[in-house]
Amino acid sequence: MSETVLEIEGLQTFYGKIHALRGISLNVPKGKIVTLLGANGAGKSTTLKTISGLTRAAAGRITFRGQEITAAAPHAIVRMGLIHAPEGRRIFKGMTVQENLDLGGFTNRGERAEKQRRLQYIFELFPILSNRRNQDAALLSGGEQQMLAIGRALMTDPELMLLDEPSMGLAPFLVQAIMKIIRKLNEQGTTILLVEQNAKVALRLADYGYVLETGRIVVEGDSATLREDESIVKAYLGGGH
């Protein structure tokens, strides 16, 4: 077993009175792609939000690179090397592509050379962003907006990236393109925790998968195992795929 980057034990979260997470435990090993699967409302996004500090945990423990981050502020967590590209992309519309990327690099704002290096890396991954850097981000297509959201998250050179539904609303060929990029990022050393509704796509990419149902993990295993187990696919992952 390789080194664990992220470790979660017995995590519980409430949204008002709704008990959204009812004790989640999972591990993300260094250099791997781990995916969280499940239906709408299963608690996938809430898990990510609780890890990145946007939502407070009611109980449990989150450890990132050996340090507990359960009650840490979101900006402090980013500084430690954990970045969360949220559901719906959430790019800053009304600001240019370049400004969006600048803000992605907020935590290393003093380091000019580092920022240039990151920008260059991102423009190599997504040449389209380079061409459109002075345009309003709102004018980008859905796929380009997703590229910007990922690019913005990469400005900090994260150790671990939480990706929430990067394929949402994209045409199949774009989904493939985005998945290819995620694979490439992973090969270059970024550990990834991926939330997806499209289980087929996610399991092809990931090393390991967890299936959530109403705030609990009901199944976990190697992607290959999950993919091939007919009963799991039928019960949790939409047998139609």
Partner: peptide, 10 residues
């Protein structure tokens, strides 16, 4: 524009 997205940018 989006306060929570800013938090996630650090």
């Amino acid at each position: 524009i989006d306060m929570d997205a800013c938090r996630l940018m650090g």
